[in-house]
Design a binder for these strands. Structure first.
Length: 957
RNA sequence: GGGUGCUUAGCUCAGCUGGUUAGAGCGUUUCCUUGACAUGGAAAAGGUCACAGGUUCGAAUCCUGUAGCGCCCACCA
C-alpha cells in the first residue's frame, strides 16, 4: 500500500484529476433514451469576465446539481458558454485603444469589430479556464458564444418573428442615455442610487410683470437673502436646474387654488429669455416643492408625457455626450454639470434663485460605467412586453415554474405585471446589428404625406442617419440582408446602425444554445440531432442565478421560452444570495475588497473553496466572506484525507473487495458496524431530503457532522483496536473481516455522497480504494459516474443507535470527570459503573470494551454498589452512576457544591415538566406521543435526581 | 411610497411544517506532541433567541405592531 502524506495537498492532484475526467469525456451528455434528461444552462459569463466569488458560488451550486443528477442516473447536461456583453466588451477594447491614443471612430466600424474579435479570441476563454479550475463539469464541447453565427441567426429570427407579430416598433421616446457610453439603456440597465442632491427653487418671472431680470452685478449677488414675493414670478423646484434651458411650460395642478389665476399666463424663462405658458395638469402634486413644475419634455419622462398632452415643443438641449448644444444659448459647449453650476450662479445674481434645499433622491447610473444617465429623447427600437408577459405570469402562478426560495415569486410577478416596453437598440458597434434596413426611396415618398411627430430642434448625431416616418414604410425587417427594396425595388437601401441589447440575445439562451431555429439548414446529418437535442433537453431543469438577474434575464427567458418554444425554459429557479465582504459590502474591484477564488484555490484547494461556500451560505441569504473562513473547508478536507489514510493503512483491499456480500448480513455484525451503517443511512436520508429541496448548506452540514463527528470521532476510534491488531499480524478472524468490509463500504459510499461538493479529493481517495481493480487491469473507474448510494432503510437500526447513545454518554461523562481532575485523557484510570436497572447493566456489559478503549480505562467494574466515596468522584450518565477512582483524597465540599449546582438545574427543569403534566389542558390537547415523551423524561430526570442526592448523602457520611 | 430580508453565545451564522435543558464553526480557557489527522484530540465557560402585544396546553419558531440594519422596485419635479 502506498503511503499517503499526512496532509492533503490539493495542488498535487486537482489538475491531474480534472484532466482525467476530460480525457474520459465524462462531462459530455448525449441523447439517451434509457435515461431521463437533466439539464442546466450556465448563466453565460461575460467574455470580459474574470472569475469572482459570485461565479464560484453560482457555479458550485450548478456543479453540485449536475454531478448529483449524473450519479443518480440522469443524462446530465450542463450547457456552457459565454456572453458577448456588448457595452462591457466594447468598453474594454476602447480602453485598450485609448492607451494607443485611438478612438473607435478612428478605426471605423469594421476595423474596430475586427479588434474586438481579436480581443475575444485572445482573452475570451479566460473565464472558461477559470471555471475548470473550480471543478465545473460542463459539457465544454457544446460551449456557445452569443455572437456565434448560428446563435446570431437565432437572434435575427427572434427579432423578425416579433416584428411580424407587431411586437416590435420604433419610436421617439425618453430613454435612459449614458453620455459616456453614448448609447440608450433599458430601464433595468439604469441602476438607481440615492444621491444627496439639492432641490433648487427658481423664480420664473411672469410676463405681465414686465420686470426684466436685472443684469448681474456684484451688488445683487446676495439675492438669495431676499424674501419670496408672490406677485412677480412663479417659483418652481427642480433637482436638475440645467434642464430649464429646455423648458417649454410650467405646470400646476388644476385644483391648486394658489395658482388657478395664473393658468394660461405666460412666464419668461430666465437666462434664455424665452416665453412659455403656465399649464394645468393632473399629474402635478400640489404638495411637492412649490406645487409648480417646470416642464422639460425632451429631458424628463413625465414632462415628455405632459408635452404630448399639451402639444408643447420638445427642445433637446444636449449633445449625446451631455454637453449642451446650441439650444442652450450661451451655455452651449458646457458639460451638463458645469452648466448647472453656472446657471445657479447666474440665477443667484439675478435674484431668481429663491433657495436651495438639500434633497436626497434616487438617480439612475449606467450599470456598465456608473455614469449618471440622462433621460434623453431619442429614436429607439422597443419590444412590446405586455403580450409576452401573459404566459410568463401564468406559468409562475400555476406552479409550472417554481422559485426557490419562494419569496422571489412575488418580486417576479410584481415586475411582470407592471412590465414596460423594452428598449432594445443600442448605439454601440459590438453586438447583433438590428436586422432592419431602410429604403430611401420609400421613405422619401412617405415623408411627403406624413405629419411630423415630436421632433427635437437640433438633430443629434446619433439620429442623423435616420429619417422619421410615421408608418412602417421604407422599413425592411429581414433575417437576410436584402439586395433591393421588396416594395419599390430600389437598391438605395442601408442597414440600421444600431445593435441589439445584449439581453436580447441572452433571453434565447435555453434554446438558441441548441441551435434553434435550425436554419438555414445545417448539414443534413446533423440537423436531426440538433432538433432532437432540443426535444430531449428542453425544457431544462433548473436555473441557478443571483437575484439581481431576475429581471434582466430570468423573466425574459421565461417570456422568450413561451413565445418561441411554446414551453417554459426551465421548471425550477434557484436564486442564491450575493457574496459580500466581511463588512457586508458587495465585493467589487473599485472597493478593493475582492477575495479572488483563484487565490483561495491556490491556498486552500478547490474542494475547500466549494465546501466552505456551501457551508457558509444558507438558502437565499447573502454570505459575508473573509479569507479565514475558507479554513473550514480546508480543515474538513484534511480530516477526510486522514480518516481515509488511516482506513487505507488498515484495510486489506483484496479481502474487502471479495467479501462485500457480508455487508448485507446485518445480524452478523458487531455493534459499531451496525451503528455506523445505521448512522450512514440515516444521514443519507436527510441528505437526500436537503438536496431535493436545494438546501445546500444544510446538506453540507449533514455531511460534515457525519464524517467528522460520527465516522471519525466515534466509529474509527471504536474499530481502531480491532484493525490495528489485525495489521499487527494477529489472526484475522471473522469479526475483523466484517469490520473491514463495513469500514470500506461506509467510507466508499460516504465519498460518493460528498463527491458533488468536493469532487477532487473524493475522486482521489475513491480511486485509491479501487486499487484492486487497477491491479486487475479493469481500468480505473471514476467516482463521477459511480451511482449515488441507494437508501437502504432496513439498515437503519434504532436499537443499536440507542445502545451506542448510552455508551457515548458514559464515555463522555468519564472523560469529563478526568478533565475536571486535570487527568490527561491518555492516562488510564479505574472506573465503576453502578446501576440497579438490569437492562442498563446488560447494555453496559455489552459495551464495556468500547468504554475501556475510548475512555482509556485500566479497570472497569460494573455493579450495583460498593464504592468508597472518599477515594473518588461520581457523576450520572443516563441512569448510571459513574465513579472515578482517585489516588488521593477528594475535596468533599467542592464535590457537594458541584453536585448541588447540577441538582439545582435539574430540579428547575423537572418542576416545569411536572407543572406541564399537571396541566389538564396539556394532557387533553397535546398529542399523546408528546405527553408520553414528557412523562418518560420526567421519570428519567427524577431517577437522576435521586441518584445525585444519594451521592451527596453518601459523601456527607 | 410599495415590497422584501435580517436582528439567536465575543464573532459569523443554523434552527424547515410550534413540544430540545436553544445548536454549529471560529474565538476564549484547561488538559493532551496517544502510531489517521496540532489544518488534530479530550473537555469547559458563554444566550431572559431586538422590543411590545396576541394566538396556543405550549412560542426563538405562528400573527400584529415598533425599532435598527440591508436589499429590490416606483414617472421622489
Amino acid at each position: 500500500m502506498e503511503e499517503l502524506n499526512s496532509r492533503y495537498d490539493p495542488k498535487e492532484s486537482e489538475d491531474r484529476i480534472y484532466a482525467f475526467w476530460q480525457e474520459r469525456n465524462l462531462f459530455s451528455a448525449k441523447i439517451n433514451p434509457d435515461k431521463k434528461p437533466f439539464c442546466v444552462v450556465i448563466p453565460p459569463p461575460n467574455v470580459t469576465g474574470i472569475l469572482h466569488m459570485g461565479h464560484a458560488l453560482n457555479n458550485t451550486y450548478q456543479d453540485i446539481l449536475i454531478r448529483l443528477k449524473r450519479m443518480r442516473g440522469f443524462e446530465s447536461l450542463w450547457m456552457s458558454g459565454t456572453d458577448h456583453a456588448g457595452i462591457a466588451t466594447q468598453n474594454v477594447v476602447e480602453r485598450k485603444l485609448a492607451k494607443e491614443g485611438l478612438k473607435r471612430q478612428d478605426l471605423g466600424r469594421d476595423k474596430f469589430l475586427e479588434k474586438v474579435w481579436q480581443w475575444k479570441e485572445e482573452y475570451g476563454s479566460t473565464i472558461i479556464k477559470q471555471l475548470k479550475k473550480i471543478g465545473a463539469s460542463c459539457d465544454w464541447e457544446r460551449t456557445r458564444f452569443t455572437m456565434d453565427e448560428e446563435y446570431s441567426q437565432a437572434v435575427r429570427e427572434a427579432f423578425v418573428r416579433l416584428w411580424d407579430k407587431g411586437l416590435i416598433y420604433q419610436g421617439d421616446k425618453i430613454i435612459n442615455w449614458c453620455p459616456r457610453c453614448q448609447t440608450a439603456l433599458s430601464d433595468e440597465e439604469a441602476v438607481h442610487h440615492e444621491i444627496a442632491g439639492n432641490l433648487y427653487y427658481m423664480r420664473y418671472p411672469l410676463k405681465k410683470s414686465t420686470v426684466h431680470s436685472p443684469k448681474s452685478t456684484e451688488k445683487n449677488k446676495k439675492a438669495m437673502d431676499y424674501g419670496p414675493s408672490t406677485v412677480d414670478y412663479i417659483v418652481v423646484a427642480t433637482t436638475r436646474p440645467e434642464t430649464m434651458l429646455g423648458d417649454t411650460a410650467v405646470a400646476v395642478n388644476p385644483k391648486d387654488r394658489r395658482y388657478k389665476k395664473l393658468i394660461g399666463q405666460a412666464v419668461i424663462l430666465p437666462l434664455i429669455e424665452r416665453e412659455i405658458k403656465i399649464i394645468a395638469d393632473e399629474f402635478v402634486d400640489s404638495k411637492f416643492g412649490t406645487g409648480a413644475v417646470k416642464v422639460t419634455p425632451a429631458h424628463d419622462p413625465n414632462d415628455y408625457e405632459m408635452g404630448k398632452r399639451h402639444n408643447l415643443e420638445f427642445i433637446n438641449i444636449m449633445h449625446p455626450d451631455a454637453v449642451l448644444n446650441t439650444n442652450a444659448g450661451e451655455y452651449s459647449g458646457r458639460d451638463r454639470f458645469e452648466a448647472r453650476e453656472a446657471i445657479i450662479e447666474d440665477l443667484k445674481a439675478r435674484k431668481l434663485l429663491e433657495k436651495i434645499e438639500p434633497h436626497t433622491h434616487s438617480v439612475g447610473h449606467c450599470y456598465r460605467c456608473n455614469t449618471i444617465v440622462e433621460p434623453y429623447l431619442s429614436r429607439q427600437w422597443f419590444v412590446k412586453m405586455k403580450p409576452l408577459a401573459e404566459p410568463a405570469i401564468k406559468a409562475v402562478k400555476d406552479g409550472t415554474i417554481k422559485f426557490y426560495p419562494k419569496r422571489w415569486t412575488k418580486v417576479y410577478l410584481n415586475w411582470m405585471e407592471n412590465i414596460r416596453d423594452w428598449c432594445v437598440s443600442r448605439q454601440i458597434w459590438w453586438g447583433h446589428r438590428l436586422p432592419v434596413y431602410y429604403c430611401r426611396n420609400c421613405m422619401k415618398q412617405a415623408n411627403e404625406s406624413t405629419v411630423h411627430s415630436p421632433q427635437s430642434t437640433e438633430k443629434t448625431k446619433s439620429m442623423d442617419y435616420r429619417l422619421w416616418t410615421m408608418d412602417k414604410k421604407g422599413i425592411i425587417v429581414s433575417k437576410i440582408e436584402p439586395d433591393k427594396c421588396p416594395e419599390c425595388g430600389s437598391v438605395d437601401i442601408y442597414q440600421d446602425e444600431d445593435v441589439l441589447d445584449t439581453w436580447f440575445s441572452s433571453w434565447l439562451w435555453p434554446f438558441a444554445t441548441f441551435g434553434w431555429p435550425f436554419h438555414p439548414p445545417v448539414p443534413q446529418a446533423d440537423a436531426p440531432t440538433a432538433q432532437a437535442d432540443l426535444d430531449y433537453f428542453y425544457p431544462t431543469s433548473v436555473l441557478v442565478t443571483a437575484p439581481e438577474i431576475i429581471f434582466f434575464w430570468v423573466a425574459r427567458m421565461i417570456m422568450a421560452g413561451f413565445e418561441f418554444m411554446g414551453k417554459e425554459p426551465f421548471r425550477d429557479v434557484y436564486i442564491h444570495g450575493t457574496v459580500r465582504d466581511i463588512e457586508g459590502k458587495k465585493m467589487s474591484k473599485s472597493l478593493g475588497n475582492i477575495i479572488d477564488p483563484l487565490d483561495i484555490i491556490a491556498q486552500y484547494g478547490t474542494d475547500a473553496l466549494r465546501f466552505s461556500l456551501m457551508s457558509l451560505t444558507s438558502v437565499g441569504q447573502d454570505v459575508y466572506l473573509s479569507e479565514q473562513k475558507f479554513e473550514l473547508g480546508r480543515n474538513f478536507a484534511n480530516k477526510l484525507w486522514n480518516a481515509s489514510r488511516f482506513s487505507l493503512m488498515n484495510l486489506d483491499l483484496n479481502t474487502v473487495n471479495t467479501d462485500l456480500c457480508l455487508f448485507f448480513k446485518k445480524e452478523k455484525l458487531e455493534l459499531p458496524q451496525r451503528w455506523i451503517l445505521s448512522r450512514f443511512y440515516s444521514t443519507l436520508k436527510s441528505l437526500n431530503q436537503a438536496l431535493d429541496g436545494y438546501n445546500f448548506n444544510q446538506a453540507a452540514g449533514i455531511l460534515y457532522e457525519f464524517i467528522w463527528h460520527e465516522f471519525c470521532d466515534w466509529y474509527l476510534e471504536l474499530v481502531k483496536p480491532d484493525l490495528v491488531s489485525a495489521l499487527a499480524g494477529e489472526q484475522v478472524n471473522e469479526k475483523t473481516k466484517n469490520t473491514q468490509v463495513v469500514l470500506y463500504k461506509v467510507l466508499e459510499k460516504t465519498l460518493r455522497c460528498l463527491h458533488p461538493f468536493m469532487p477532487f479529493i473524493t475522486e482521489e481517495i475513491w480511486q485509491k480504494l479501487q486499487a484492486r481493480d487497477r491491479v486487475q487491469g479493469s481500468g480505473v473507474r471514476s467516482i463521477m459516474v459511480a451511482p449515488w448510494p441507494h437508501l437502504q432503510k432496513q439498515m437503519i437500526d434504532k436499537k443499536s443507535e440507542g445502545i451506542m447513545r448510552i455508551a457515548i454518554e458514559v464515555i463522555t461523562v468519564i472523560r469529563n470527570l478526568k478533565a475536571q481532575m486535570k487527568i490527561a485523557h491518555t492516562q488510564s484510570v479505574k472506573v465503576s459503573l453502578l446501576t440497579k436497572d438490569k437492562k442498563s447493566k446488560k447494555i453496559l456489559e455489552q459495551v464495556s470494551q468500547y468504554i475501556i478503549n475510548l475512555a482509556k480505562l485500566e479497570k472497569l467494574n460494573i455493579g450495583s454498589k460498593g464504592i468508597l466515596h472518599k477515594k473518588g468522584i461520581s457523576a450520572i450518565a443516563a441512569n448510571i452512576q459513574v465513579f472515578l477512582e482517585l489516588e488521593g483524597l477528594v475535596d468533599i465540599e467542592k464535590e457537594i457544591e458541584k453536585l448541588n449546582k447540577e441538582i439545582e438545574g435539574l430540579s428547575r427543569d423537572l418542576k416545569a415538566k411536572e407543572a406541564r403534566l399537571a396541566n389538564k389542558e396539556f394532557i387533553k390537547k397535546a398529542p399523546p406521543e408528546i405527553v408520553e415523551k414528557e412523562k418518560e423524561l420526567l421519570t428519567a430526570g427524577k431517577e437522576k435526581l435521586t441518584n445525585l442526592n444519594k451521592i451527596i448523602h453518601e459523601l456527607k457520611k
